[in-house]
Design a protein around this nucleic acid. Structure first.
Lengths: 119, 119
DNA sequence: TTGATATATTCCTGTATAGGAATATTATGT
DNA sequence: ACATAATATTCCTATACAGGAATATATCAA
């Protein structure tokens, strides 16, 4: 039962750098596939395929407009990721704690030469 | 040149659900591998391997303590992801805009039966 | 040294892709 | 119906890698 990863998952979908670039390109506007091709300078099938993955993950929506397909980002779909990360924000600067531990350990293991010996 | 993905990248590292679980398990405390094994009930090599990937991505640090290895989360390494997502926050609720567009389009394409025909 | 405990690594296999090339599909205009 | 423009899909190949099993390495204790 190898590989639990699949691109339909939001986390995996944005793990691919090109797909992140695509989201950055598309954000805040509606672009047809060819417009994306022009902007990114990637091959059209590549754009279509990455867009397709993003669509499966729900990260973009597609709308037919004449013979073009116009894509938009569903920014909300990034919310769960943001929430997942948010729960760790309070540990952001906790290296200080670790440094603290480190210093404490150091002091305990040291022969205690001098310093304020006011026990 | 297939597959640009590699687990040493932070985004890819957390794309794996088990790895996210591992981070959740480890956050805010220091645990040895076996403690993680007990908590998660996964096989030890699996724990070690996932921890190794997280370490390569910089998401955890490891410290030798006797014959055990104690792991901690480097929460800061999640910051870039949070920043990447943050740039899209302002588009969070923009479906309303899209709904707006939709309604406008609808009105324009409709035969305009009645309503304020003031042109 | 021997044994035991803790952890990492290696080998194997199946699978999910990313990218490229070529082709298919869909919609439009005439 | 036909040509064309816009986009999607299929086929191919190389590769990354998750999970399992077995084994290696390291560290301590006696």
């Amino acid at each position: 039962m190898p590989r639990a990863l699949n691109t339909h998952d939001t986390f995996t979908a944005i793990a691919e750098p090109k797909r992140r670039e695509l989201i950055e390109t598309l954000i805040g506007r509606e672009l047809s596939v060819n417009q994306v091709v022009e902007i990114t300078q990637w091959r059209q099938p590549m754009v279509s395929k990455h867009l397709s993955v993003l669509k499966q993950a729900g990260l973009v929506s597609e709308r037919k407009e004449g013979r073009q397909r116009v894509y938009t980002v569903n920014a909300d779909k990034l919310k769960p990721i943001q929430l997942w990360i948010a729960q760790f924000e309070k540990h952001w600067n906790t290296q200080f704690d670790q440094l603290d531990h480190y210093l404490t350990d150091l002091q305990n293991s040291r022969p205690k030469t001098e310093a304020k010996n006011d026990d």
